[in-house]
Design a protein around this nucleic acid. Sequence first.
DNA 1: TTGTAGGCGTTATCAG
DNA 2: CTGATAACGCCTACAA
Lengths: 343, 343
Amino acid sequence: MKKKITLKQIARELEVSISTVSKALKNSKEISRDTTEKIQAFAKLYHYKPNNIALSLKNRRTKNIGVIIPDIVHHFFTTVFRGIEKYADTRGYNVIACVSDESFEKEVINMEMLANGSIDGFIMALSAETQRKNDFHHLMEILDQGMPLVLFDRVTDEVICDKVVINDFESAYMATKKLIEDGRKRIALITTESYLNVSEKRAQGYCNALKDHGLELDKNLILRLPYQFEDEKKSEAFFASTNMDAVLCVNEIFAVRAMRIAQANGKKIPEDISFIGFTDGIISKLANPALTSIAQHGERMGNVAAKMLIEKIEQDDEIEQEEATYKTEVIEATLIERESTIN
Amino acid sequence: MKKKITLKQIARELEVSISTVSKALKNSKEISRDTTEKIQAFAKLYHYKPNNIALSLKNRRTKNIGVIIPDIVHHFFTTVFRGIEKYADTRGYNVIACVSDESFEKEVINMEMLANGSIDGFIMALSAETQRKNDFHHLMEILDQGMPLVLFDRVTDEVICDKVVINDFESAYMATKKLIEDGRKRIALITTESYLNVSEKRAQGYCNALKDHGLELDKNLILRLPYQFEDEKKSEAFFASTNMDAVLCVNEIFAVRAMRIAQANGKKIPEDISFIGFTDGIISKLANPALTSIAQHGERMGNVAAKMLIEKIEQDDEIEQEEATYKTEVIEATLIERESTIN
DNA sequence: TTGTAGGCGTTATCAG
DNA sequence: CTGATAACGCCTACAA
């Protein structure tokens, strides 16, 4: 077993100084051809690679970016993560992944761990609990330390930083409008509890679309479900007691579950009732019938977020805090039509 | 904006030496009550936290573990990842995630990046291409440097290290046996191309079960699909040309796609034909009909892998390379019966 | 009780 | 052309 070799060892072995070795390996023209070759050969032989940690310490730059997401077993976040990872990779950055598990405390702890030098910047989506509590002091602190931060999807107006979101309002509006134009009159909405601002925006898009098209907003047509749930009773009761001919769901899982219940009640999809869900993941594609859904383009979101972050990181040096300028990128969601709506 | 404060700055500010500060913050009894209090108060005020990078350099220990998986948008790997992350978190470790995208080259590059000091050990599943090429020199090198490595799921006998796998052979055997006992006679297998050793073991379990129960192995009943594919033609042709009353699939996506085709052909599930898939993910649960599947307990796998790795990391100090001993943990898969098989 | 010095691995500056 | 020195931030054995 040969532990990683260091400059010092090479230097000792070859009886030259450390700095000569360092320069030779960088092809510095200060060093003679001879020694350079000798040193490089030796280094290659022993698979010399500079130690990242030492470099980080010296450069005050880790080439790591921290990503905190609420849940890794969630198709959308996973997709964003992939986008981040892919872009980061092209720029030579590693991704340190932490999961907040929708918990405020875990979010805070993870941020603190990473903020102590492990990374050059954050990309994150707020945990449900953080949104519920409306407490963002940990984000403020990070920003205060001059560490770049990009928020995506689950964002908040209370923190001033770079953001990437989709046009939730507009896309829900569009989807609802499509249902109306298909001739649907009683359009239900299945959403989460109200503290998730993404859901809230989608709900608003739904409401406005109804209003603008002369349909009355019927509260009985709105079902609010806990974000993570196993129990279908509430949904079953909803379908049993409510008359509807279309359903908009704020995510694909709600949609597929709802479809199953409707089918069990003898409804035909899309003849009797159409469905549209948010998050165009594999579940939508493989559903039976395949679900019409609103693609959030998570991978692109991740790409954009990573790009924004790395730009901030790398410009930070130059501008050195003149007056940071923040922007919010909006990714346009698109409707993917499948079997669960009338074509 | 206040950049992170360092020991040196505190020392200068308070006009004491760096080491006094360091000791005071550690409550060393060498330092007088007075100075200790003064220093601690000051440190708290400025949110002092030791710099991880400096600690890593000093301790030659990063408290990071590197995870390389072939694909992050994949329910099983995601689940394992969560298990790793959760356990790592309890032990104060961060997880650096890299995705090989099923590519040998990306796997090698990622490993090299991380191996240069960024992490204390690896957890990984081999990329498809690596398994196909049967080239493991990069793993050997890592081990040679004394860096702990735990392989999970996609493992190989050619590398001697810690491993976590499920009992692929046995569980495929069991599942096939169940189908036989349900009275099925013509049981198909839908699997991947042969270089994925996991699929191969499952296929063997299937074959042996047939043999042991007096059923002949019919090659026409085996369909090999590319690992990632969009095109259903091959599957459609298979279902059109082949007569079968049950199907075992090496993953849930194959299974759900196959079910759709069978249904489109007018088959009733499970009356005319039953389905069992591997990977008990959300897709199985939400399928219509819900898919009977073999749970691989990814989260537990991740847990176990992380535990094995961290143990190795932390014992490495003490034992300092006496004679490393490696083990392979087997996680027992379990059959979750749902609507796609006869109860 | 406090401070000094050396080292973790690297690079950059300056001197020889 | 080569080497000594300082610095990145922290810790610790050893002086004072």
